[in-house]
Amino acid sequence: MASIAARRLAKELKEIHAEGCPVGINLLKADDFETWWFSIEVMGESLYKNEAYTLQFRFDAQYPISSPAVQFVVTDGHQAPIHPHVYSNGHICASILGNEWSPVLSVTAVCVTLQSMLASCKKKERPVDNDRYVRHAPDNPKKTQFHYDDDT
């Protein structure tokens, strides 16, 4: 199945190069089919105005049948946005990255979803269980069984 992952990622990359990313999103680095980085910024009025964050995508051979591992970069001076669904280690609790992942979702579609997740935020705060989660979190956020609540 590795060939499907490669073909699909090649196609996505080609589209990004040809058509560019949606507004506020920029491809930083995509040298291989394992890890890509994007910068993400919320446009217009929001709690995150003028703040830029870095998103990391990790792909395995199962992509796109199974979701990529997506998180905010928190090393080298980068920080994760303060948001009720973003942990301080960069892990994100979003159902589309877990049980509602669909193989038709593209990398840019995920970026746009996360961008609007930030845009709709009403209050900058960390998840209530942030400290506990971060202490025990696995390196790969896909190994976490997030509980997706329906609010916000």
């Binding site: 949606p22 509602e100 979702l105 579609a109 979803t113 609007s116 997740m117 609540d149």
Partner: peptide, 10 residues
């Protein structure tokens, strides 16, 4: 819950 996300692009 995609947290009030707007449209998802397929």
């Amino acid at each position: 819950s995609t947290r009030g996300a707007t449209r998802i692009l397929a």
